[in-house]
Design a protein around this nucleic acid. Structure first.
Lengths: 127, 127
DNA sequence: CTTGACCTTCCACTTGATGGAGAGATTATA
DNA sequence: TATAATCTCTCCATCAAGTGGAAGGTCAAG
């Protein structure tokens, strides 16, 4: 199938599929004589795999590694687990940072009258 | 003072201060005859202000707006509050997305044996 | 034969910086 | 005073992960 149909089946924009092809993440199974990218069901499955992994915020490089393992019949689940676990740590770190941010900002917003006067604890805090 | 000293006082890399100057976010108070950026205490305060706001993940454009309000004696705290509140909503949304991600990924990692065998619920889930 | 949908490559833009090259300015030391 | 070290300047490239658009080739239907 052509890129449009493949993108459709994977639920990705055509541009993104072409981008994944450009960076060698998911290559089309072959090219037509006129240069059209052609995707078979295997390559579409890879696109879907990448889409899922990306929705988990895995980086493109992580996806590349996971995709290798996905295709590797000799893989060990410990390898996959390692990548996922490292990623989990990143997510947890980010989440707690965001939480601190939210608490502090919430505090500031609550302290701010939000009226016509120029007095503002938010501005004061930043100054 | 020169850019190095200003950057130092603001706790920002010189490159960043120059970048803020380039995009017109915090301009140096003037330039020396030889073209050196010169920062007075007011412009350094603005740098510090931006640094704080950025540490709260406010975008550069938000910072620009907050900086305008910071300098505006006729500002109303409601304007500042609006920006901060919108930002708070973004942070909360991001935080809950991250939480969902963490829970699901944690689930997957826990379900994965992480041993020598190729069977892996993480890979299965993505496939 | 032409229209329209789809495909191609290439280039620019996004955010918020950061790194480096090459050159000029200033300051410290010998 | 010479020179070396440090600072600063501008300009260009790069990062992630695409997205948007231009200019042009391809294909099927009417």
């Amino acid at each position: 199938m052509n890129i449009g149909e493949a993108a459709n089946q994977a639920g990705l924009p055509v541009k993104t599929v072409r981008y994944y092809s450009d960076i060698g993440l998911v290559l089309p199974s072959h090219r037509s004589t006129s240069g059209y990218r052609n995707y078979d069901s295997t390559s579409v499955k890879k696109l879907i795999f990448v889409k899922r992994a990306r929705s988990f915020d895995f980086s493109i490089e992580d996806c590349r590694e996971l995709l290798d393992l996905y295709q590797d019949k000799n893989r060990t689940s410990s390898n996959v687990r390692r990548i996922a676990k490292e990623h989990l740590v990143q997510i947890q770190r980010k989440e707690s940072e965001l939480k601190n941010l939210r608490l502090e900002l919430n505090h500031l917003v609550k302290a701010c009258a939000g009226d016509d006067r120029p007095d503002c604890p938010i501005i004061d805090y930043f100054s």
